[in-house]
Design a binder for these strands. Structure first.
Lengths: 224, 224
DNA sequence: AACGAGGTTAAGACAACGTTAATTCAACAA
DNA sequence: TTGTTGAATTAACGTTGTCTTAACCTCGTT
C-alpha cells in the first residue's frame, strides 16, 4: 500500500490525519518540521506528501521546492485559511492539490486518493494475449478466439493474474495474496472454486483442463 | 509582439502570470472583473486572453460569450479544479484551451505559445459520433439517429466523456474525478442515478442497456 | 484400502446495482 | 420578496449477482 508522509507542527492535526489515513489503508509517516520532513522523506520515499504551508523556521513552501528539485512525489498542501498568496506560490511550485483548513477529513482522503490515482494509476493497463485468449483490463473484456466471454470480477482478476505469468505455478496462498489482496482472510479452498468456474468458461473439456492446470501439492498455473 | 489580456479578480494571480508573460516577451494587460475586461478588450484588442472562469458578478464564461460575438480572439480558461462540466461549457463557448489550477506557470506559458501559433489554424472538431449518437459540445447538442435529445448539463458531460472513450470501463470514482471535477465530494452512487437518467433517454429498453453498460464490481462503460 | 489433495455442488451471507422519492439549491419570473 | 421550475444529490428499499464456505465426492499415491 502507498506510503504517505505528513509534515505539520501541530501534533493533534498530525494525529487526526494519521488515524484517518491508516484507516484508509496507507502506511503513514510524519514529521513536525521542514528539516525532519526532509530527513524522513529521504528515508522512506513516500508516494505522497501532505504538507502544511505554515511551518516554523523554513516554510512548507520551501520544503516543497527542495523536494521538487529531485523528485516528482505528489504534494498536497494544507493551508490555514485561503491565503491567495500561498495558493499562488503553491501553484508555481508544482503542488498537486491543496486543502484549506479547517478541512473535512473525508475530503482530504478523497483528494489523496485522486492524486495518487493520477500519479500512479494512469499508466495504460496492459492487454494480455495468450493461448487464444485476449484479456483487456481497461475494457474489462475477455475474448476467446474472438468470442467475448463474461467473467465475474474475481474470475477476471484471477485469470488476468495467471495469464500474465504463463507457466508459473502459484500456491493458493500466493494467489490469495496477489489477487484477493493481503488483507483478505478467506479460505485457500476458495481459490479452487474460482478455478473451477474459470475452467467451465475457457476450457474445451473442464474435466481435462489444458490452460488452467493443477499442480498437485503446489497450486495452479496457466499453461505456457 | 503579441498582446495578452489577463482577467482575474485575484491580484496575486494576475501579478504572477503577468510577470511570467512579460518575461516571455509579451505585452500584458489586465483586468479584475468581467466588465473591466470587456472595456480593456475593446481598447487594446489583445491577441489572446487568459480568463478566470470564476469572476465576481458576471462569470468568465459570460465574458467569453460576449467576446465571441464579435471576435475570434483565442481564449485560455483558468479554472480552479476544472470539471468536465466546466470544460464542456468552455468548449461550448469556443475556448481554445483550458488550464486547471493549481497549474504550473511554465505550462501556462507553453500553452499560450501553442495557442498563438495556431491562432488562425485548425481547431479539432470535438464532435463525437458513435452508435447512432452525435454529441456536439460546441453546440451543446445531442442527436440520436438524427433526432435531437435534451440533456441536463451533468448528463451531457457524463455521456460525452463516456462516449469519447467507447469500450473503456470507468469506476465511479474516476468518473467523479473526470466529469464532476476533483473538488466535488459527492457520493459515488450519484453516478448511478445519472446513468439511469441517460439510459432512460438513449436506450431502447433502459432495463437492458445496450450502450451504457454496467460492469459489475468495476463501473460503467459506453459500448464499443 | 487408507489417506490426502483436489473437484464439485449448493446454500447462505453479503455486496453491488437499480430504482424511486424526498430534499436541497440555484436560476428565474411574477 | 415569494413562488416556480429543474437539476443534482442522497437515502432508502428491493433485487440480483457474486463470493465464500462446508459438505461430500473422486482420484491418485502409498
Amino acid at each position: 500500500m502507498s506510503k504517505i508522509l505528513i509534515v505539520d507542527d501541530e501534533p493533534t492535526i498530525v494525529e487526526t490525519i494519521e488515524t484517518k489515513m491508516r484507516r484508509e489503508g496507507y502506511s503513514v509517516f510524519s514529521a513536525a518540521s521542514a528539516e525532519e520532513g526532509m530527513r524522513v522523506f529521504r528515508q522512506v520515499k513516500p508516494d505522497l506528501m501532505i504538507l502544511d504551508i505554515m511551518l516554523p523556521a523554513r516554510s512548507g513552501l520551501e520544503l516543497c521546492k527542495a523536494i521538487r528539485k529531485d523528485s516528482k512525489t505528489p504534494i498536497i498542501f494544507l493551508s490555514a485559511r485561503a491565503s491567495e498568496a500561498d495558493r499562488v506560490a503553491g501553484l508555481d511550485l508544482g503542488a498537486d492539490d491543496y486543502v484549506i483548513k479547517p478541512f473535512n477529513l473525508s475530503e482530504l482522503a478523497a483528494r489523496v486518493k485522486a492524486v495518487l490515482r493520477r500519479a500512479t494509476g494512469e499508466k495504460p493497463s496492459e492487454v494480455v494475449e495468450v493461448a487464444g485468449l485476449r484479456i483487456d483490463p481497461a475494457r474489462h473484456e475477455m475474448t476467446q478466439d474472438g468470442k467475448a466471454l463474461e467473467l465475474s470480477p474475481k474470475e477476471f482478476a484471477l485469470l488476468y493474474f495467471l495469464a500474465r505469468n504463463p507457466g508459473q505455478v502459484f500456491s493458493r496462498d500466493i494467489l490469495l495474496d496477489r489477487v484477493w489482496g493481503s488483507d483478505s482472510f478467506v479460505s485457500p479452498r476458495t481459490v479452487d472454486v474460482h478455478i473451477r468456474w474459470l475452467r467451465e468458461r475457457i476450457e474445451q473439456n473442464p474435466a481435462q483442463p489444458e490452460k488452467l492446470q493443477t499442480v498437485r501439492g503446489v497450486g495452479y498455473r496457466f499453461a505456457g
